[in-house]
Amino acid sequence: MTAKISYDDVEVGTELPAQTFGVTRATLVRYAGASGDFNPIHWNEKFAKEVGLPDVIAHGMFTMAEAVRVVTDWTGDPGAVVEYGVRFTKPVVVPNDDQGATIEVSGKVAAKLDDNTVRVDLVAMSAGQKVLGMSRAVVRLA
């Protein structure tokens, strides 16, 4: 593993570069195909509303995949992620227009652990709401 960030160069509180990720209906169709999750709440507005959702929502796993990019873009080596967990607290609602929705992700080093690993706590927001809770990654640094 060859992360480009050195363990000695980070402190508790070190902020990772924040990122914003866009998601449209087309993104969700593509993710459905790649992941094999064809639940209609992610592409069929009529179905989503019938089961009580405000509109089509993004796959939780899509949001989870985007959020960790703040960590993997920081370290350079995605193989350095040893642990990653989230709670899905609110759905990312994706309207049927050209803009879709955005997911804003920030992260900071919350703890320095053994074996050159650090715990990064992530915050993911969409439309002003926290969409992931307890979002934490343990990553091995150089």
Binding site: M1, T2, F21, T27, A34, E66, D77, P78, G79
Partner: peptide, 20 residues
């Protein structure tokens, strides 16, 4: 591609090897 992630470790065997 579906998650829009262009990290070469996912697509380029040489880049992945360079990371070990």
């Amino acid at each position: 591609e579906a998650v829009g992630d262009t990290n070469p470790a996912y697509t380029d065997p040489e880049a992945a090897k360079a990371l070990g």
